[in-house]
Amino acid sequence: MWASWNWLGVACWTLAVIILIFAVHNIRKRRLKMLVTQRRHFSAANFGLDLLLIVIVAASFGTMIYATFLHTDTIADSSAIQLDYRYRPLVMQTRGDQVYLVRVHNGSGHTPIQTYTYWTEGSKYQINSRDATISTGKKIVPAEAAAYPWPTKSMERMENNTRSSFVAVIKATYKNTPFNGLGMHAGRAASYHEIIRIPSDLFVYIDNPATK
């Protein structure tokens, strides 16, 4: 989603490029003039102005590179990040004699990624193990997802109302603020994670179990 403050970033990047072009043109013009009219290869005044322009160019590009590519906000920073939570009660599935709430497909390679498939009322969802965690223990939020600020009371209500059969979703979005706009992040997704909560491992169906 493109937010209004992102135009600030576009304008500042444009200004940084204009400053660079002006600096290169100005330095070249003054050096040529010094060589032709003054027949000199060095001037303290010219050198000082060159340094000033180089510092301005470095500062403008450094600021924009930091804001656009290097700056990161913590997910709990409410001044920069908007958090949204959603909950989806799970619907039981059957395959032969087995009933399950989530189906797992194991990936391949040196660092295999699992794909989780689950169903809610009228919908089917798929997500990989980088963006989701299956929770079956006493704690609703497993250690793998504990870095996210989950709402404890809402999670406990869903735990009781669904008998531990639901999906909790957290979506973090950059707010439409001037600094987020400077880096052209405003309105864009910052982070996403799901907890697939099921009563026990018995409700997991694995398509292709890993074998030794």
Rank of each mutant, 00 (worst) to 15 (best):
Trp2Asp: 12
Trp2Tyr: 07
Trp5Cys: 00
Leu8Thr: 11
Gly9Leu: 07
Ala11Pro: 09
Ala11Asn: 14
Leu15Tyr: 09
Leu15Gly: 06
Val17Gly: 01
Leu20Gln: 05
Asn26Val: 12
Lys29Met: 07
Gln38Cys: 07
Ala44Pro: 10
Asp50Trp: 06
Val55Cys: 04
Val57Ala: 01
Ala58Trp: 11
Ala59Gly: 13
Met64Asp: 03
Phe69Glu: 12
Leu70His: 03
His71Asn: 13
His71Ser: 05
Ala76Met: 13
Gln82Ser: 11
Leu83Arg: 09
Asp84Ala: 09
Tyr87Cys: 00
Leu90Ser: 01
Gln93Val: 12
Thr94Glu: 12
Gln98Trp: 04
Val99Ser: 15
Leu101Met: 10
Val102Glu: 02
Arg103Cys: 00
His105Tyr: 04
Asn106Lys: 10
His110Val: 14
Thr111Ala: 06
Thr111Met: 14
Thr115His: 09
Thr115Glu: 11
Thr115Val: 14
Glu121His: 06
Ser123Gln: 14
Tyr125Ser: 04
Asn128Glu: 10
Ser129Asn: 10
Asp131Trp: 08
Thr136Gly: 01
Pro142Ala: 03
Ala143Ser: 14
Glu144Thr: 15
Glu144Arg: 13
Tyr148Thr: 04
Met155Asn: 05
Glu156Asp: 12
Arg163Asp: 13
Ala168Gln: 08
Lys171Ile: 04
Ala172Val: 09
Tyr174Leu: 03
Asn176Cys: 04
Phe179Pro: 00
Arg188Thr: 10
Ile196Asn: 01
Ile198Lys: 02
Val204Phe: 01
Asp207Val: 13
Ala210His: 12
Thr211Ala: 04
Thr211His: 11
